[in-house]
Design a protein around this nucleic acid. Structure first.
Lengths: 291, 291
DNA sequence: TGAATTATCTGACTTAAGTCAGATAAAATG
DNA sequence: CATTTTATCTGACTTAAGTCAGATAATTCA
């Protein structure tokens, strides 16, 4: 017996519009209109190009101009012409502006902490928030090529290892696996892709090249909160594209039968099962694909 | 390695304010201001007392009056004095108003359905939404005494049985358990309490009386999405209060060691373990509490 | 019964937000 | 170089939302 899904979604919508909506209005406590606060926050977040901010916040150019003027009069920002194109303007925080921006940040952070602290299982709550935020913003997930030693890449890899340890009967120990050398997953030999949803890394895949015409796909991982959105397929397609760019003709990969979703994906996307081609103790199934 | 919780909460806030916020503005497509749409919706949901709606939506009395007038001019509602108190007014939908209200409902329902349909694991998404909505609105959870045959009670019980079936090694079959007679959980013999969060039943407890001075606590259940909020304790306290009201002096209950959270709760709240007092095949631990 | 309280309404405001039609100056284009 | 395009700004609007001080009528209280 399940409760009507539509009722449950609408209950969620009501809850967030009343409660999270209050967050917006809490910004009004600092004597500035919501519009001005939003512009100040965008600048504080590192946006400087006026046109970009206007576009992001969906503001009319007249309105934007006036909001900038009011922030300038308050001494929070200064604007100057863009040196590359003097028609455009860039805005940056003054010292006062920076501290005002941090006051807004502190407000948000305190709210977030309070919300989590009231729950006795904050990890559950965060998981649920990740699922929903990722799903709501699914059209804004971007794939970025990163150094596998970058913070976001390392986060994905550590989550990946943690998941293998949970799913493999005998656990997982990276040092026993064939851990690729970082340089083999950076151009020109290979590549490492991270899927980012609104700043949070939620998936990755590595293309481990050797300089020759063959390469391996390694470390395909999608965060539990991002499953069901077709992200693994998107990561694989991007990895194949990178391989083509690097003139790679043959892709191989190894996997484990404890990860059936992965095997299904490979079979559905043109990969063929082949004989074992390495001695990785954690691999028991092997695939290849010609490009 | 976990990502900064505060960043994750704030990412969630951004996602819902941009995406769910768009829901609010989508109501503007019907040529009415958001304020008027909200009033119309409140009336459609069954609120008729003008003061109650005003209070719920947090509107100024002047503004409310004007919004009602504009809806009246459109022929969507009619207002008349409250027969009990002619200072107060009640509002109700006209035939036109009803169909306009249903148009708004259809908009919301379609949005909810579309959102779920885009996900390949809607059940996961709903679970996450329940967790968050319940947590956000935790201060608005109400306990209501209901007939155990009521829809909401039956929903809780079926979820409870489903959970026992999953958690007990040998499963669970209601017919084998000592299923209480509904009448024993209705006043004056007993009571049945359901916890409701914004319309969704999320927990229950039964007080099974016999007419005498002893009674049993049965069917204590809290929805997975509502765990961590202290709801079980609140339900037990309410059940004890009901027992006192019914002049019951001794409470007993049976439970199973596969439900350790429950046992911990009983031990923390003044219950003492006693000898087996019934032959329920699913019970292996027994408690009592003197009131 | 007379005074105080309460619910609603009306008119006269303010404010935030947003729209729109030029004006201006810089850059791009042919 | 003249023309067109682009980014921003300014002034003159509109609209939704909300505030505030009475006015009015019904109800409650002493």
């Amino acid at each position: 017996m399940t409760y009507d899904p539509v009722i449950r979604v609408r209950r969620f919508n009501r809850a967030v519009t009343t409660e999270v909506g209050a967050l917006d209005t809490s910004f009004l406590g600092r004597g500035r209109s919501l519009g001005a606060a939003r512009v100040l926050n965008s600048i504080g977040q590192g946006q400087s190009d006026v046109a970009v901010i206007r576009d992001y916040l969906g503001l009319d150019s007249g309105l934007m101009s006036r909001l900038l003027r009011s922030l300038e009069e308050e001494g929070l920002i200064e604007t100057l012409p863009n040196p590359q194109d003097a028609r455009r303007r860039v805005a940056k925080l003054t010292e006062t502006g920076r501290s005002e921006f941090h006051a807004y940040e502190a407000l948000s952070n305190t709210r977030a902490k309070t919300f989590l602290a009231r729950h006795s299982k904050p990890e559950e709550l965060l998981r649920a928030m990740d699922i929903i935020a990722t799903s709501l913003r699914r059209d804004h997930i971007v794939l970025e090529e990163k150094d596998p030693r970058h913070k976001d890449a390392r986060y994905c890899l550590s989550e990946y290892y943690g998941e293998l340890a949970r799913r493999f009967e005998k656990g997982f120990e990276v040092s026993l696996s064939r851990d690729p050398n970082a340089r083999d997953m950076i151009r020109p030999r290979g590549a490492f892709l991270v899927a980012i949803s609104d700043g949070l890394p939620i998936g990755c895949v590595g293309l481990k090249g050797s300089g020759g015409e063959a390469a391996e796909i390694k470390r395909l991982w999608v965060a539990p909160s991002a499953r069901g959105l077709g992200l693994a397929k998107r990561l694989m397609t991007a990895a194949e594209l990178a391989a083509r760019e690097l003139s790679i003709k043959l892709l191989r990969l190894d996997t484990n039968s404890a990860l059936p979703e992965a095997q299904q994906l490979y079979l559905r996307t043109g990969w063929n099962e082949i004989e074992r081609f390495n001695d990785d103790p954690y691999a028991d199934t092997f695939f290849e694909k010609r490009l």
